[in-house]
Amino acid sequence: MNNKLKSMVKALSEVFEGEPWYGESVMRKLENVPYVIGYKTCIPESHSVSQIVGHLIAWKNFAAEKLKNNKEYSIKMDTEQDWPEIKIESQEEWEALKRELVAAQSRIYEALNEKKNDAFLSEKVPGKEYDFEYLLRGVLQHDIYHLGQIGLIESQLKNKEVDSGVFKA
């Protein structure tokens, strides 16, 4: 694995489970979200944290499939596949959803570990008009974007649920 690829893997890991400079990683943030708000939204038309996690899983699976050169794999935007309807009703379901997210991220790492050098980063993604470097940067940006949404939902619901005991002081 060459330097550019190593750097990409490091960045993916830092954003997902590490210590990024801007604050909490995806998994650190999700560790602090109580399961009882996982399916709640701030406004009726918005997505819940669990739906966002399902969305992240969908697109991580997309990236992993493309890294394995699966030309046929696709996700249609704004569908159940893109935004799955997920309702979390127990701590066990919440933990299972987070494990599914970790597994999806791991599939990306596994696919990247099979790559031997940086040259593949400039190859076109099967069935797309962009290259693998663009795809992987997109995964990073996607995580950060939705991490911000999760943080906003958490802070809004924390204010609403302050007296419920859901959030520990």
Rank of each mutant, 00 (worst) to 15 (best):
Q105S: 11
L112N: 06
I88C: 05
E89M: 09
K115A: 10
L112C: 04
E92P: 00
T79E: 05
K68F: 04
T79Q: 07
K87G: 00
L101E: 05
E114Y: 06
K115S: 03
R99E: 14
W83D: 00
K116D: 09
E89Y: 06
E92C: 00
K98Q: 10
W94S: 00
P84H: 09
I75F: 02
N69I: 01
W83C: 02
V102P: 01
R107F: 04
V102K: 15
W94H: 01
E110K: 08
Y109D: 12
K76G: 00
W94T: 00
Q105F: 15
D82K: 06
A104E: 09
P84Q: 07
E93I: 02
K87R: 13
D78S: 14
N117Q: 02
I86D: 07
V102Y: 12
K87L: 04
I75A: 01
E110S: 12
M77A: 11
L97S: 01
R99L: 15
E110D: 13
W94K: 06
V102C: 05
N70W: 04
E85F: 06
E95A: 08
Y73E: 11
E95F: 04
S74E: 14
T79K: 10
I75W: 05
S74C: 10
K115E: 13
T79C: 07
I86H: 08
R107A: 13
E80G: 02
A96H: 08
I86S: 09
A96M: 13
I88A: 04
I88S: 03
K87H: 10
E92S: 07
I88Y: 00
K71V: 10
K87M: 05
N117F: 04
Q105M: 10
E89C: 07
D78T: 11
W83H: 08
W94V: 00
S90W: 06
Y73S: 10
K115I: 15
Q91V: 03
E72T: 11
E110N: 13
E93M: 10
Q81K: 15
Q81A: 14
N117D: 14
K116I: 10
N117I: 01
I75L: 06
N69R: 12
L97Y: 07
L101M: 09
E95W: 00
N69D: 12
E93D: 04
E100V: 03
N69W: 05
K68R: 11
